[in-house]
Design a protein around this nucleic acid. Structure first.
Lengths: 219, 219
DNA sequence: ATATTTTGTTAGATGAATCTAACTTTATAG
DNA sequence: CTATAAAGTTAGATTCATCTAACAAAATAT
């Protein structure tokens, strides 16, 4: 089994991973607020355990095993958030701190029971996908909004990299999960989109934003 | 705040405490499965923090502050057990391991919500009292063994007016706190009881003794 | 009342996770 | 294309919770 500390590194690596799956030691250091040399030696330790691919001066990558372990920690976190919101009536802004601690519990029956009580949810209250019991996220039904084309109508289903700031940004635009978005124009030069949703008829979303919004196509 | 480790020492001290409130370093060492020298240095550390009264070669006692902190940890443990049994449909034998981990969460809102959802219970699923928000146990629902009837199964929880002699008497009969006692016969003429506990199947306890033993009913 | 056993203490080592200081490699800007 | 900055690494110190070995005090048994 992995320590509380190791789990936090795995989780951070998982969350920071870009499309290449690469993370710099520096990013990781900043995210965890742990100094570089500490991160460095932990990476060697995780490499010994076959959880991380480590080569001097190269970016970090989780191994398959590492991804699975990280996914399972994140599963516990997101199931917990969902449970707290749905079954204990907490607000979505209150649950992160609690889930941050609960994700380290070694109590498979407990989390399985939560999942059962929640009807095996696939997204958490912030719209982040919940990894399955093998630590994998099922991306099948999601597409990035930025990959859709003019004329498509989609439903906002999940949010990638949901920092507080980004969530607040979405709130101010009334972009809640479940909102139906109609894509009117995709600007070819910068990928920004002119869309309509709710009663708004002409909102513009930058490519950066559109990349972080996961949607499902609606007919 | 106290570390996970410190909390475990406090909890063990609280649980081992007899009427005098005294615990030997040896008992503590055995209970925690941690070697004596480690226990010893931890006691000095807790003494520095004013959580334990420590004097060389003397038994250990929790300070008022220590009792409160320990009580709060135990409150979290027992609330959790109650929640798991009542709201998540776990069996009472399944919940200890989970509660053992959850008791260390720093999440006041979470435990408060549990308490609220449970209607502010005062005993846990095993019949142990749940300390209140100030870490204190309300002893009101304890009964004298002498007030119980044949057929009852009870747990020895405290001893009234425990002189050294009385404690030695209890020790020679293996009557430690926590022992489950089954009452087989109550003699009507003198109130003495024929009971079984541990591996003993036919011990007699006089009314005088039974009056001094505080028990909780076990279902 | 002394010898033996049990309990408690001291000293020093270890491993985990962190740090700072100093150095090296890679990236970036003139 | 070099100079500087940023990122990564190495070495060594620190703190926490643990250990073993050796010693001291208290309790117990003969």
């Amino acid at each position: 089994m992995h320590s509380y500390t190791e789990e936090n590194y795995l989780k951070a690596l998982f969350n920071l991973a870009n499309e290449k799956g690469e993370v710099s030691a520096n990013e990781l250091s900043k995210k965890l607020e742990i100094k570089m040399p500490t991160v460095n030696s932990m990476m060697k330790k995780l490499a010994d355990k076959k959880l991380v691919h480590y080569e001097s001066y190269k970016p970090l990558r989780l191994t398959e095993k590492g991804k699975k372990e990280a996914g399972l920690v994140i599963r516990k976190h997101r199931l917990t958030e969902m449970y707290l919101v749905q079954k204990m009536d907490f607000g979505w802004e209150q649950v992160h701190e609690i889930a941050e601690q609960m994700e380290h519990l070694h109590a498979p029956d407990f989390f399985e029971k939560m999942a059962e009580m929640l009807g095996y949810p696939t997204i958490d209250p912030h719209g982040s996908p919940i990894p399955d019991k093998s630590g994998k996220i099922d991306w099948r039904h999601y597409e990035k909004l930025s990959d859709c084309k003019a004329g498509d109508t989609v439903k906002l289903s999940a949010v990638i990299n949901g920092t507080d700031e980004f969530l607040k940004f979405l709130n101010t635009r009334e972009l809640q999960l479940g909102v139906k978005i109609k894509i009117k124009i995709v600007e070819p030069f910068d990928g920004s989109m002119l869309v309509s949703y709710n009663k708004k008829t002409g909102e513009t979303l930058s490519h950066t934003v559109a990349e972080r919004l996961l949607v499902e196509l609606v007919k």
